[in-house]
Amino acid sequence: MSWLTRSALPVAVVLAAIVALWYAGSVVMNISWEVDQAKRAGIEVGEPAPDGFTDTWFPRFSRVILNPDLVPGTMTQERPVLPTPGQVWHEIWNTSFGILADCEVETTEEGWELSSACGRFFTSKRSLVYHAGVTLSATLLGFGMGIVLGILIAVGITHNRAMDMSVMPWVIASQTIPILAVAPMIIVVLNAVGLQGLIPKAMISMYLSFFPVVVGMVKGLRSPDALQLDQMRTWNASRWQVFWKLRWPASMPFLFASMKVAIAISLVGAIVGELPTGARAGIGARLLVGDQFGDILKTWGALIFAAFMGAALVALVGLAQRIVLRRSGGASA
């Protein structure tokens, strides 16, 4: 009961509020098309006077209020300005787990089989889950490379004076360049050396995700205080021992905090990496196709699916964090 009121209820209330706002937005955004259709069909519609308003917020609100009977139509448009949550949900469901629904059963001599156009559930190449899998592999590879690179740079910065004084500005500068500008260059350069597909996308993910790891780990590796370092000195510990026995374990909470940010932007990087190549698979490809063909639902489906994927990845890192930090004391976890 307490779990219900303390956790589930507030979350549900916020979620319901977001969905309600989204529906309201859809109605307001999509009303103009309904009004135009009705006009063309010769149906009397209420228009805010005077005529000739540009299509801004105020006349849209007025149209909703003046034509309540047109509201249901705003939620079922094929190409809405803003699709409703229900439409997006149906799009995601139909293009991921509902592929079988499109299948036709063909009768053959042996009995029956599914038509050849039909995919095998969500492993079908038409499935959003398949596309998400393509993006996910680049995300995870880039995330892994970003962590390794980030840790190496952080170790360099904390252990080498020259690196400490010279590397950080470059690291920061690398992040001020818009990734949309860098991504095509990385793709082209890597293509020139024969790298295509997964690796270039992962490189873009790495480019984004190493940054929070560097920042977090530099802070983490420097978190041991003077007393702890003096202690190590009294035991005549080597630099290597100070690193493995003190600096490294002390930096774990920082690493996990960085990883939560890194995994989320790693996903963004992989999607961005799929845009300039005209990739044929991946969430980015779906966004592009949806955009090019004016299939707004496809774009929104891919977008929301990617958002859930990102949330799930961050949650997974959070879970790993809780497990690791619980095993090592757990006081601060």
């Binding site: 007393l227 202690q231 002390a250 090592s328 004391g329």
Partner: peptide, 16 residues
């Protein structure tokens, strides 16, 4: 390693 040093704070490692 001729001496052991006890500091003002215990300085135990929280992860150990």
């Amino acid at each position: 390693r001729a001496y052991g040093y006890v500091f003002q704070a215990a300085g135990l490692y929280p992860w150990r």
